[in-house]
Design a protein around this nucleic acid. Structure first.
Length: 261
DNA sequence: AGGTATGTTAATTG
DNA sequence: GCAATTAACATACC
């Protein structure tokens, strides 16, 4: 489930497992996931190096090594990291970073929509891929100005990575659900108070998901996410959850909690 | 078997 | 230039 909270959980997982061990081998299962590099070049780049820290920008993960470049990991629609003390290969492990002590960090990406690359700097990557600021780095004022500067539907605006980076289809639904805002509401319909409230809700939802380690079992009782399907009972009013097409993506909402514009 | 899926990008249309 | 729409990508799941 790789939106901001999912990637943040992966970042912390990597930090707590895979740092400071010299890389001995890199294995790539499917070259399609590599962007601008080859298995051989990736191996030459990483062998003997240690992972020093992991940073995140939006849905993108960056792993710093002993030199100045960064390993970039992106999951696309599916995927996780798996650390193993022994190098037991996980299903759909597309890249495996095997350490000298025999442990491995595995980039698991079943649908191959993710990617692995080496980038010279995070700032440059963000610029070249036209990513907006990370959502959790924004002040209330910055958030309000960015949203107010757009003309489309609010759900689409929240998901637009060039406006702000990190929110995807699932968490945009969650944020709008708690805010009682219909996903198709025009962004220009939000006044200053509504933008201020939307910002607070956005931060709250994303941080709550991280605190729950993106485990649906640990999410609050009044969350949409664990029952995000057509016909489910709205946890707040008992009404029926419906699915709507918004800009080609499926939006789930409660029509009585989120009245149509 | 067919529809759907948490992301991104390119092409097209208004 | 901006916004909306559609298709494509590759695979798993129901």
């Amino acid at each position: 489930m790789p939106e901001l909270p999912d990637v943040e959980v992966e970042r912390r997982y990597l930090q707590s497992t895979a740092l400071h061990r010299p890389v001995a081998e890199v294995h790539v299962d499917r070259e399609r996931i590599l962007d601008g590099t080859t298995p051989q070049a990736l191996g030459r780049r990483l062998n003997g190096r240690r992972f020093q820290e992991a940073r995140r920008h939006g849905k993108h993960l960056f792993v710093g090594t002993d030199d100045e470049s960064w390993l970039h990991l992106h999951f696309g629609m599916t995927g996780t990291l798996q650390f193993r003390e022994r190098d037991e290969v996980e299903p759909h492990a597309r890249a495996r970073f095997v350490f000298e002590d025999g442990a491995s960090l595995q980039f698991v990406n079943p649908r191959l929509l993710g990617g692995v690359s080496v980038v010279p700097s995070i700032e440059r990557f963000v610029r070249e891929h036209d990513l907006g600021p990370d959502v959790l780095e924004l002040t209330r004022e910055e958030f309000g100005e960015l949203v107010a500067g757009r003309r489309g539907m609010i759900k689409t605006t929240l998901m637009d990575q060039s406006t702000m980076a990190g929110i995807g289809n699932v968490y945009s639904d969650e944020i709008l659900y708690h805010e009682g805002i219909h996903p198709k509401l025009g962004t220009d319909a939000l006044d200053d108070d509504a933008l201020k409230s939307l910002h607070a809700r956005t931060v709250e939802v994303l941080e709550t998901a991280v605190d729950a380690q993106v485990d649906v079992e640990r999410m609050p009782d009044d969350w949409l996410l664990p029952r995000r399907e057509e016909g489910a009972d709205c946890p707040r009013c008992g009404g029926e959850i419906v699915k709507l097409d918004v800009s080609g993506r499926s939006a789930y909402l409660c029509p009585s909690c989120q009245p149509a514009p």
